[in-house]
Design a protein around this nucleic acid. Structure first.
Lengths: 133, 133
DNA sequence: CGGTATCCTAGCTGATACTG
DNA sequence: CAGTATCAGCTAGGATACCG
């Protein structure tokens, strides 16, 4: 998706963009939500809860999130294998931010999007007129 | 990317996911950042600032953000055409959240990612051992 | 200037099958 | 059970060309 070459950024926004790139992918948010509501969730349990996700993608997403330091993998050396995933402290803080984001979405969601011809578009027209006169 | 069918979500997370889907795309964040640092930016100006973005994608992203009620488009009926983009009030509130996200990334970024063999992975090993005994 | 139309490619995503 | 390997489809993103 993104490639590094042409995206010159002055500040260390790059770090944000990197994280953003992971979190922005499909399922990431839902995985975090699930782990937030129930710690120590197993792979199969996650897959069942997030119905529709393939083991391929789930494994991929879990790996990325682990590398970001957002989740922790606990391996039980048993037969059959048992692995549990849970959130890190870092993720708990992220959770707070995500909650505020959720509130933000909820707050405005009802006002906009109600009409297909969006309020924003209407505003565009108004602004056009204002500037014209 | 996402398709609606198999992604059953209980709460109105769907609204968050929708927004997330837009914001998570490439350039969205940088566009917002730019508009935050300078209101009333023109199309060409944006394109120059975000060096590397194509007009195709920029137009697409701006449209999506406008539909989300995050930016506003002001059209000046002149020849040659002049269009300015700026943030809505909704976006200003989003900015606060994004800033806290930026802080979150910055806070943890230094601690993790320093060593290639990530702290998280180390922790995995420790946890494995703990549970083993 | 501020886009749209078109085409092309890379990579995400998912289905299926297989393994320690 | 918890993944990997492999293959296939789709879509996001980018290059180019063109238009009002």
């Amino acid at each position: 998706m993104y490639d590094e070459k042409s995206t010159k950024v002055e500040c260390d926004c790059q770090a944000v963009l990197d994280t953003w790139k992971i979190l922005g992918k499909r399922w990431s948010l839902l995985i975090l939500k699930r782990l937030h509501s129930k710690e120590n969730t197993r792979f199969g349990e996650l897959q069942r809860t997030l119905s529709g996700i393939s083991s391929t993608v789930l494994a991929d997403r879990l790996l990325e999130l682990e590398r970001e330091g957002i989740i922790i993998k606990i391996i039980f050396p048993e037969i059959p294998p048992k692995v549990e995933y849970s959130l890190t402290v870092r993720a708990e803080e992220l959770g707070i931010i995500l909650t505020s984001l959720e509130n933000w979405v909820g707050k405005w969601n009802s006002k906009i999007k109600t009409s297909p011809g969006t309020q924003a578009h209407l505003q565009t027209q108004i602004n056009t007129l204002k500037k014209t006169k």
